[in-house]
Write a protein that binds this DNA or RNA. Structure first.
Lengths: 314, 314
DNA sequence: TTATCGACGCACCAATCGACGCAACTCGTA
DNA sequence: TACGAGTTGCGTCGATTGGTGCGTCGATAA
């Protein structure tokens, strides 16, 4: 039988803090029972408990209590962890000819793959630009670019060829994303840091994220590929970002210690995202979030930006 | 609506300078919190922040800090966002400090170096974009970007630090060049192939060349970094470019055999350019041209394009 | 009677303070 | 070309401030 309204002592015991601390949190941070008349006992509803739970988890992760309280106070609905569905079935590409298996990614992907195969930079750019203008960054990446790049990568792994195709296409995608980022105006200071893991030289997905962030007006700092850990730490301590996204493409570059190091800097970022297929969920340090796809990464970044916009400058 | 009063650390992080520097600015230039009792912590109001913002912007433009402070100190209190004036007067900039040696590359380079040092992506982009619009790609590269990049590189080699600065600046430059390339319309088919040498992962100068080519309307194909020789040969035989530019940054990646291979493909390119400091003049195969700088590379490329235009159309 | 209330104070620690000095850059001068 | 002078960003050091959790105390709600 669930609790309808917990007393201060019960909540304190449940959270593992002193009762006085609950009172302090209430009067210092405004983090208390939603309806409470002075002089009367506090009654914590489940919604209040959820807020306090966020507070406890963030402080336990090392976030400064003031920031944690701000984050907890106006936490909208709990983060849509693991948005279900998203069935990313990969049909066996039984395409054996001179083309690229793009699965059911649609005719545009097939056209793009063909243009890439013939090293036709102009057609590549045209296709990407068109889809980008129509569908936006996220859809273009997930529905067009990633399938084609993955397809070329698989064929390249199998035949040890097509490297020039991969290079040219990557280059075109990179340029397009850069142009997209440059065209969009961002609001507010850059509070999100994008970086590849140490030795990770695959930065295209991170560029997609950058373009997607720019598209929705979120400022960011992009460090690019092959960022040594000390450099990353230095950048974090010097700029104090609200969120850090660390991309790892393969397991070889996915040293969880890098993430752990991010959590131990003086003013640690509120959110640390481990992005990319390199990371393994069970080896990630506590407090690190692992977005499943580009859309979720963007959503999280936007959430952080919004919640920090109306706080003081950390 | 944002913050009410920022701490010294928050301001420092926001501006990208060290906390000690803020204190120095306060006592040397009187550029500090309007109300501050000695011994107590500094609390920067939005008005104070606006002043510091002016200081940051001016120094990013290459103005000497003393002058910038004088200018910032007598800023009107009513916080007019930027968009004002932006008078780009530059009093004889004297400067020193922990910045990057840019020699006599001009105040813009000094400002860019400072912006890079403080990881200020916005100021970096602004400076580059402005110079690019005024002076064009070649002048921007030779007079602004290359000096600063070289300066940071040297300092990095000496101190084993600044990697994050180098990464961020490279990223910004890369994005700007990409956007430039994308904005310009090229005439005719792409008959020039740009590629890095095998294992060469330094592609920024090649991106500068790409942008410069796009600026004058010359089409190109860019393969990017780390192009294996077979992939390069494959690309050349399949697209039959009129000219190939192969970039090598260090001697380790400058195997002359790559150039030789280019000359033996069925329909060999008219012009093979060995660009970059990696190549050594005396080891180059006959028939390979070694441009001394960006301007010469562009001139050669344009010459090839023109000579092809009025010959057969092929 | 018991748990909680509001107010106050204390101990701990990170952030910051003021002062000083260093290193590196530019420029003028020889 | 070399060198001293002036500038300037920032690291370091010991002391202090402020933020934070929590214990204590008389009064009060349950």
């Amino acid at each position: 039988m669930a609790d309808e309204a917990l007393s201060a002592g019960a909540v304190a015991r449940r959270l593992g803090v002193a009762v006085t601390t609950l009172r302090t949190w209430h009067q210092r941070y405004g983090l208390g029972p939603s309806e409470h008349v002075p002089g009367h006992h506090r009654r914590y509803t489940p919604a209040d408990m959820a807020r306090l739970e966020i507070m406890r988890r963030l402080t336990a992760d090392g976030v400064s209590p003031a920031d944690a309280a701000r984050w907890a106070r106006q936490a909208p609905d709990p983060v849509p962890v693991d948005s279900v569905t998203r069935s990313r079935t990969r049909p066996p590409g039984r395409d054996g000819g001179g083309t690229i298996p793009v699965g059911r990614a649609g005719p545009a992907a097939r056209g793009l793959a063909r243009a890439a195969m013939r090293l036709d930079a102009e057609a590549i750019n045209e296709t990407i630009a068109h889809t980008l203008a129509v569908s936006g960054v996220i859809a273009t990446w997930e529905g067009l670019l990633r399938p084609v790049l993955v397809g070329i990568g698989e064929r390249h792994a199998a035949t040890a060829g097509l490297i020039e195709v991969e290079h040219l296409l990557s280059r075109c995608v990179s340029e397009t994303f850069a142009a997209t980022s440059r065209a969009a105006a961002t609001t507010g200071p850059a509070r999100i840091l994008l970086s590849c893991a140490d030795e990770e030289q695959h930065s295209l997905p991170l560029e997609a994220l950058a373009a997607a962030l720019a598209e929705v007006g979120v400022g960011y700092r992009m460090l690019g590929a092959r960022v040594p850990v000390p450099a990353l730490i230095e950048a974090v301590t010097r700029t104090g970002p609200a969120a850090v996204v660390l991309w790892s493409h393969t397991r070889a570059t996915a040293d969880p210690a890098q993430l752990g190091a991010l959590l131990t800097v003086p003013r640690r970022p509120l959110l640390v995202l481990a992005a990319g297929p390199g990371w393994q969920a069970d080896t990630l340090p506590a407090g690190v979030v692992r977005p499943v796809d580009l859309a979720e990464a963007v959503a999280l970044a936007v959430a952080v930006r919004d919640s920090l916009d109306q706080s003081r400058g950390d």
